[in-house]
Amino acid sequence: MNRRSPAGYTAVPPWIYAVAGVGASFVLIPLLAMVAKVNWSQFIPLITSESSLTALGLSLRTSAASTVLCIVLGIPLALVLARGNLRGQQLLRAFILLPLVLPPVVGGIALLYTFGRQGLLGHSLELAGFQIAFSTTAVVMAQTFVALPFMVVSLEGALRTAGGKYEAVAATLGARPTTVLRRVTLPLVLPGLASGAVLSFARSLGEFGATLTFAGSLEGVTRTLPLEIYLQRESDADAAVALSLVLVAVAAIVVGLAYGNPQRTTKAKVPQ
């Protein structure tokens, strides 16, 4: 991981730059096209309208909550997958990573049949006084479902790269497993944990399909920014484009934080 390219020679054939240019344009041109479509004279009123701000606020709050859930659930999962010795661990990993490739709407249907009123657990939950469907909780659950794999992948990679040498030393010096986890392992993989958290947040922010299927859409309760954009597009294209740009900006900041400095995020620092 500390591989460094020898100075002066990069081993990238010139034609690669041409193809890379095409690849970059494929992503950048649509974004520029959207920026070009923005009605700038109306931009500020459109993004500061009450429904826009409510949706943005809800998006930020729910994404923050799902990120916390991803950290709480993702750390143990990544530890088990990277270091544990359970039977069927490969299978467990495959299932946990499944939401990465599933269409989110499928995730929404699955959640509906689990936590919905008629769902596997939903009926018991309702008897116990918990109503999940159509609530902000449902939004957070949908977001966590799709974002959790990002945390697990990121952290498991960091754990594998870091190896177990320092933990072994700590253990021989008499530290208990929980102390080793807290004082050695977690500080060692903190950059991986941070980029996992940022990616989970970004994924939660963009969540649409599972939310729409599982949580519904009501202003201030379940209508997050992507749902608001989808709805505005029906009647007011200008508002939809303006809000899309806001979402792009927030996402760009978040991804920039995660990947802006690859050295910082991938290099695991050894505690002194």
Partner: peptide, 19 residues
Amino acid sequence: PVSEESSVTDVMGKVTSGE
């Protein structure tokens, strides 16, 4: 309402699923 959907099929989906 507990939800205002973007399409009539989404409303129908919430009804047929019993939500």
